[in-house]
Computed example of a mutant assay.
Amino acid sequence: MEFGDSEEALKALDKCLSHIKWRLRPSAKRRLEIDIQSLCTGLRPVVMVDYGGKMPELGKHLCTLLHFARKETTIFLQLRVMVIEDMIYIIHVEGLAEHISLSLNLQPQIFFVDLEQDPPKMILHSEQNTATSELVAIQKQFALLLPSNEGNTGSSLPNTAMTAPNVEASDCNPHGCTLAGEGSGFESSEPIDMSNIVKDTQITLPTINGWLLGYPVVYLFTKDRVADAVFNLSTKSLHIYKILIRRQEATGRKSSEEELMSFTVPYELSQRADKEPWAEAFLTHILAKLESCRQIWMHLRMEVSECYPQAIAL
């Protein structure tokens, strides 16, 4: 993705937001821009959207936005809205397929914080227990539904009838050709509903989110131990890890540092902060991705701060 493509995507995004009359607060719009660019440049395979409203209106807005954005530029072709229960995400289809493939091959290695134990204990993804085995099974189900670079074209994606964008006659292609983003499969405007994959499992959504969002350390607990997990985490000091990034801007425009992602780890399991081996490996992994899109991003760094015990919802 070149700088010009990035500017084109932002202009298309702004135009489509106006077209569908979705009025976002400046901070939410900035967050959406960062999320879209991080997906399109390959820095992230999935982002969780917890700004700009609530379900189902938020889902309708996102689906309609991407529907029209695909008509403006092919940059948005790989982006889809995905839902799992009451959570909503934007995914890069090929990026997520690659993320799943790497995860199944334990690349990079994920560390889990077992919140069912007090004090919490850190374990490797490769260590076998019921929860980690169930996560692997979920990853394999995701893999079956998404196209990959290994010849799998993906099964029929489980769409949900959350929304059908209102398309006016003026939006149709007068030449009878399929417009960017229209058609079947992963180019559909309907959201991908993955709720059934996790419906009958014991693994929790916070664990699935941690993996989907690409965190190096993921909280692990089952549905019947939520109360224990909340207590064990709420009574511990935490380290907050933030990946901060700065975009390249057009000449004369001021560039500000933005948060790409953030996650927490119990203080006792991360006393070396950004010097923890897994933290250094994660930063190296992200910086390697950055090299392929230096035209878009000019700077990336990790920031670690401490958070004292407080009530936490999982």
Rank of each mutant, 00 (worst) to 15 (best):
M1V: 12
E8V: 13
L10Q: 09
L17Q: 09
L17C: 11
K21M: 07
R23T: 08
A28K: 10
V49M: 02
D50M: 14
G53R: 06
P56A: 02
L62V: 04
L62T: 01
R70L: 05
T74S: 15
F76Q: 08
Q78M: 12
L79I: 01
M82T: 06
Y89I: 09
H92C: 09
H92S: 09
G95F: 02
L96G: 11
Q109I: 15
D118F: 04
M122L: 03
S133M: 11
L135R: 01
A143F: 10
L144P: 01
L157T: 10
P158E: 00
T163L: 07
L179H: 12
L179F: 15
E182P: 02
M194T: 04
N196V: 01
I203K: 03
T204E: 12
P206C: 08
G210I: 01
G214F: 05
V218L: 04
F221Y: 05
T222H: 11
K223R: 02
V226C: 03
V230N: 03
L233H: 04
Q248H: 04
R253P: 10
L260W: 07
P266S: 10
A279L: 10
A281Y: 03
L283T: 12
L287T: 10
L287E: 14
E291G: 05
L314G: 01
L314P: 04
